[in-house]
Design a binder for these strands. Sequence first.
DNA 1: ATCGGACTGGACTGTTGAGTCCAGGCTTGT
DNA 2: ACAAGCCTGGACTCAACAGTCCAGTCCGAT
Lengths: 200, 200
Amino acid sequence: MTRALTAKGAATRQRIVAGAAELVRTRGADQVGLDDIRAATATSKSQLFHYFPDGRAELLRAVAAHEAGEVLNDQQPFLDELGPAGTWKAWRDAVVQKYQEQGIHCPLSALTTQLGPADPGIRVIVADLLETWHTRIADGIRRAQGEGLAEPSLEAEKTASSILAAIQGGVVMMQATGNIEFLKVPLDAAIADVEPVAGA
Amino acid sequence: MTRALTAKGAATRQRIVAGAAELVRTRGADQVGLDDIRAATATSKSQLFHYFPDGRAELLRAVAAHEAGEVLNDQQPFLDELGPAGTWKAWRDAVVQKYQEQGIHCPLSALTTQLGPADPGIRVIVADLLETWHTRIADGIRRAQGEGLAEPSLEAEKTASSILAAIQGGVVMMQATGNIEFLKVPLDAAIADVEPVAGA
DNA sequence: ATCGGACTGGACTGTTGAGTCCAGGCTTGT
DNA sequence: ACAAGCCTGGACTCAACAGTCCAGTCCGAT
């Protein structure tokens, strides 16, 4: 990374990334040009290239990293608690509500499918996110097992994969159909083994 | 649609769509220009606009429709059989193998996430596909119930949603991580209620 | 055979958008 | 105070690419 970054510079850089992320989220990566970002963040072309010498590609990688961080940040409090009865339901509700608010706009699928294939760097960021996310869920499952709230025979890693896939798949289907049930139903089914509370 | 289409014309049009679909699948929609399609299909600019007067957008809609048809075509034989013991496993294996071969390239997620947000016409195509797919799976679940191979209390529609979400989510995660286990495991878990055979 | 219309080739236009450049303003350490 | 160098503005270049245009060729019906 570039060293020598004053407080002002860091703030500007941050403003650019946040603004660009917002645009990418709502419009899709290929619908966002440097001029759009420039306008939305009250910056100039030279600033964009000052902070991201490799241009658009580097900026989008920063956006991906930013969005990946946000995904975990949003869920952090819930993920840490996962285990005891009720915590899974609370987390589920938070996830559902989040995507309901965002509507069509998913920071991840936008980046994965749009830029992932073309940019290995972004794929790595997404893969890291998924791995971390997966680990947190698996940890929660083990805690549930420790408290006798889930079958000891349950394989934490595999169950975590199912839960995570239910979310990813549910979001994809929700984006295409506009129906949030396609997220709720699979997610409820996936967590049924650790939180036997059906949500209608 | 354009009327008056001779056999030759129809063949050319078909060649364009198939060639464009191939490119979109492998490179991603935003990485495919009309000139690429022109070169790959041995056609000229004027032919593209002759068959798709609305240009790139119309051509991509045709590609989306084509790909959606392919997804169902590939699975048609398996979907029709779903119900009896062993049919779910066979279908699962076909799906897994298909995506293993395709690797990163999923015709659907490419179109949904890349073009869906910008083009409502494409979202409709994808939504229709998902609905049809969902219905076929639900039908299979009801047949399994009819033969006493699945719990009568199982809600076919909801279970079908879970299975479909497992596929969609599994594919997304596989694309990001390159690990096909993220498709196999959730899908096996999702069909466990109708085909209690674990695949490792 | 010949006329209308489907079909094709390829040059041309106009725009969009990434990346460059340089001149000047502002911060920071000494 | 005063350099060194971080920071900013905005005009400029250049390539890529969607879409246009027209001069044709080929096919089918009469």
